[in-house]
């Protein structure tokens, strides 16, 4: 599954409304890399430009300057090796397609025949624990189930890289635990590379091999932490591990510390 895939972000800058009266600099010279098979969590406060970063990684928004490379190619648009699961599961599923059709739709774009499409879709739905809802319409499913469908769609696309933007932000707490475990399990089984953007510190530590902490204004990388739990994790023991508490404290301190610094010396920039 791993095809030597890797994402490189170099000196990424993003400015909205450039040259205008409301010029707003979001990202200032961000650099990071994602290794093949790795799970990387990007964590930071709301409004830090996490979503902007993910959109750049997905090739949806061209950066103002700097570059995003996939392997040795420069990304200029959405890539066939990258699947995206967005925060807005309700909006990203097409309401007029049955669940299996939603999962299979990207394959239709590749010219896969209907029978083969459906078989793949059902397989992927099975993998996310939704074996028997293929013939329903999205509105008939709960929020957590809809987000599973979106994940299944990413799997069906058979991309070695899965990008997730606040994927579990708007589902209930219980489904959230389940979806986190599902993500870990899929990654272990399929060996895919996962990048998750989140504002939830616990989630970032639980899901990531590495946690990249963003902060500041404009946003920069504050810290990168390596998480020592390996690929076998579970909600009870991992979260009870003293190192878990240590890591989340460090992430929180990095974000808080940066904020306190800013408060102490106001209006310098």
């Amino acid at each position: 599954m791993t095809r030597g895939s890797v994402l490189h972000v170099e000196d990424l800058c993003m400015t909205f409304g450039q040259g205008g009266p409301q010029e707003h600099r979001v990202l200032a010279g961000l650099s990071l890399r994602v290794d093949p098979g790795e799970s990387v969590c990007v964590v930071g406060p709301s409004g830090a430009g996490k979503t902007t970063l993910l959109r750049c990684l997905a090739g949806l928004t061209p950066p103002t300057s700097g570059s995003v490379r996939y392997g040795d190619q420069r990304l200029t648009g959405p890539h066939a090796d990258i699947a995206v699961v967005s925060q807005d599961y309700r909006g990203s599923l097409l309401p007029w397609m049955r669940v299996w059709d939603n999962v299979a739709f990207p394959l239709q774009g590749r010219g896969v025949r209907k029978a083969a499409r459906k078989a793949t879709a059902l397989e992927c739905l099975d993998a996310v624990g939704l074996a028997d809802v293929g013939d329903k319409y999205p509105w008939q499913l709960s929020g957590g189930m809809q987000q599973r469908v979106a994940i299944a769609r990413g799997l069906a696309y058979d991309a070695p890289v899965l990008l997730m933007d606040e994927p579990f932000g708007s589902v209930d707490a219980q489904s959230r635990f389940d979806l986190e475990d599902l993500t870990l399990q899929l990654r272990r089984r399929l060996g895919i590379t996962v990048v998750v953007v989140t504002h939830d510190i616990d989630e970032s530590v639980y899901l990531g091999d590495r946690v990249i902490v963003l902060g500041g204004r404009p946003t920069a990388v504050l810290d990168t932490l390596t998480v020592p739990f390996g690929t076998d994790r579970d909600q009870l023991t991992t979260r009870a591990d003293p190192r878990f508490a240590e890591l989340r404290t460090r992430v929180l301190a990095r974000i808080r510390g940066e904020r306190l610094d800013q408060d102490a010396e106001p209006a310098h920039n």
Partner: peptide, 15 residues
């Protein structure tokens, strides 16, 4: 970007 940017539901620390 969708309207639901600020999420209240979470089981961890939210910044």
């Amino acid at each position: 970007s969708p309207a639901l940017t600020i999420e209240k539901k979470s089981n961890g620390v939210v910044v």
